[in-house]
Simulated assay, not measured.
Amino acid sequence: MTTTSFTAHQTARPQGLPSPDDFTLVRGPVPEPAPGTALVRSSACRGAATRGRC
């Protein structure tokens, strides 16, 4: 299992339509799921996240 998580954080309030400058891609450890929750793997950004584009 992958041990790195990529999360998009909104860093600015968009004026009009959002742009990539309004977000930051944050890399961190995969969290342990809390009781009653699930950890989901998504392939939506596979490859793009490792290049900093998701």
Rank of each mutant, 00 (worst) to 15 (best):
T50S: 07
Q10K: 06
C45A: 13
T11Y: 01
R53P: 00
T4G: 00
P14E: 14
A48W: 05
L17V: 04
S43A: 11
R41T: 10
V26S: 02
A8W: 05
R51E: 15
Q15G: 07
G16I: 13
S19E: 14
H9E: 15
G28E: 14
F6V: 00
G47F: 07
R46E: 15
T7W: 02
Q10T: 06
M1C: 10
T7Q: 06
L25A: 04
T2I: 10
R27E: 15
R51F: 07
R27W: 04
F6T: 01
P14C: 08
V26A: 11
T37D: 07
T7A: 12
A48L: 12
P20N: 03
T50P: 05
V40S: 02
T50F: 03
S42H: 09
R46M: 08
P33G: 13
P20M: 04
P29M: 03
D22C: 08
C45V: 13
Q15W: 05
H9M: 03
D22A: 04
H9K: 07
R27P: 00
D22R: 03
G28L: 07
P18E: 10
E32D: 15
A49S: 12
P14M: 11
T2K: 02
V26W: 06
T24P: 00
P29Y: 05
Q10M: 13
G28N: 12
M1K: 05
R41G: 08
G36D: 15
G28I: 09
T50K: 07
F6E: 01
F23P: 02
G28R: 03
T11H: 01
T24S: 12
T37R: 06
G52N: 07
P18D: 07
G52K: 02
P14N: 12
H9V: 14
L17K: 09
Q10E: 15
P29K: 06
T3S: 10
M1R: 08
T37W: 08
A49M: 06
L39E: 04
T2S: 12
T37K: 05
